[in-house]
């Protein structure tokens, strides 16, 4: 099973992939409206907002956790 290179989500169903295109390496949540992949800053901001909204984390902690997660992902290797 493929996993999204930008957030690590497993992609099993067609609807998991960006634009429903199973040849894509990134998921529906990491795609912009035009189907291209979000930039590093866009993804970081959206993960940060999501983590604070759903888990109530302190902003500084959330930022470190998000960076720590992004560091492991193939799409962002060049940013660390």
């Amino acid at each position: 099973m493929k996993t999204c290179i930008a957030c690590g989500m497993p992609m099993k169903k067609e609807s998991d992939f960006a634009m429903g295109d199973t040849s894509k390496e990134y998921c529906i949540y990491c795609a912009k409206e035009d189907g291209s992949m979000q930039s590093f800053e866009e993804k970081k901001q959206s993960l940060l907002n999501f983590t604070i909204k759903t888990q109530g984390l302190d902003k500084a902690i959330a930022e470190k956790a998000v960076e720590n997660m992004m560091r492991q992902l193939p799409a962002w290797k060049g940013f660390f």
């Binding site: 983590t51 909204k53 759903t54 888990q55 984390l57 956790a65 720590n68 997660m69």
Partner: peptide, 19 residues
């Protein structure tokens, strides 16, 4: 600290689905 970050990320998967 780094292990705690991995733990947060494990919970993020759960919070994504739940939300």
């Amino acid at each position: 600290q780094d292990a705690k970050f991995v733990f947060i990320n494990i919970q993020s998967v759960v919070s994504l689905h739940l939300s």
